[in-house]
């Protein structure tokens, strides 16, 4: 995935689309007060500068599907692992709720089910049958909407009457809910195993010049908390500042 910070307006369309797609329980006021709200993708809002030269910065943060994922080696039951497509996968029926993965994730994108999931009368009708409702006591997180990838594959296979090869499912048929919803197209998604995917050049740029800051100025690409060497599968494109702040005074 590529996240263009220059296009994100912080509108939260991705957040709600994700919650609807992935059967995320209603985040009550108490969940927020306890800092336990479920948001597989969230918009972080940073402040830079002081009034009147002040900027609110919007940054979508979701599971980075790291190649060197810190959450994976600490799971005692192999509930989280890396699949052959590069997804960082959470197997709910293996998870025993140690929360080691949550502690070890520098991006804080893993959520623990402190409560039994609960929908009011009638609202259970809107639950997505492709997505497991997670029970109390286990960890969950962004899956890159793996159910959409699977459904895309199966529908293509059913239509063609034969098994899918690597290149047959067209880009756009498996966009995660957040990417599909994003009004400004700040979120882009693709399969890096495909040679012609639109996001590949961004990854090539960042992979070829890691930590090369002059080059970063041109491509705008960087990985979140790159110094941790987690090698995320999400690349951020820097915000373009036409009126840069003299003193960022970030807080």
């Amino acid at each position: 995935m590529v996240v263009d910070l220059d296009k994100c307006t912080g509108c939260q369309a991705c957040v709600v689309a994700c919650q609807a797609e992935n059967n995320i329980p209603i985040n009550t006021k108490d969940y927020f007060l306890q800092r336990r709200a479920y948001e597989w993708i969230r918009i972080e809002r940073y402040w830079e500068g002081e009034y009147p030269n002040v900027k609110a910065r919007f940054m979508p943060v979701l599971c980075q599907h790291c190649e060197n994922a810190p959450c994976e080696p600490v799971c005692p039951v192999y509930a989280t692992y890396h699949n052959e497509e590069g997804l960082n996968v959470q197997v709910y029926n293996r998870c025993v709720g140690t929360r080691y993965c949550i502690n070890n994730c520098p991006y804080q994108v893993r959520m623990f089910n402190y409560w039994h999931p609960n929908w009011p009368h009638r609202m259970e009708n809107q639950l997505n049958p492709d997505v497991t409702v997670r029970s109390r006591g286990i960890t969950e997180k962004c899956t890159f909407c793996v159910q959409r990838i699977r459904r895309g594959e199966i529908q293509v296979e059913a239509r063609a009457g034969q098994r899918l090869d690597d290149n047959r499912i067209a880009a756009g048929n498996y966009d995660p809910a957040c990417v599909q919803a994003c009004p400004t197209s700040a979120l882009m998604f693709g399969d890096l195993n495909e040679p012609n995917t639109a996001i590949k050049p961004y990854f090539d740029d960042v992979n070829n010049y890691p930590g090369h800051h002059e080059h970063e100025r041109e491509t705008r690409g960087y990985r979140l908390l790159e110094e941790m060497n987690t090698r995320p599968s999400v690349i951020y494109l820097k915000k373009v500042d036409q009126y840069p702040l003299a003193d960022k005074g970030a807080h």
Binding site: L5, R42, E44, Y46, W47, E48, R57, M59, V61, P106, Y107, Q108, E216, R217, R220, Y222, L224, L225, Y236, K238, K239, V240, D241, Q242, P244, K248, A250, H251
Partner: peptide, 16 residues
């Protein structure tokens, strides 16, 4: 949100 990392390490920008 992301721990105690400085915002500048997390949110990056370039001048025009």
């Amino acid at each position: 949100e992301i721990g105690e990392h400085s915002a500048e390490l997390v949110f990056k920008s370039v001048s025009e």
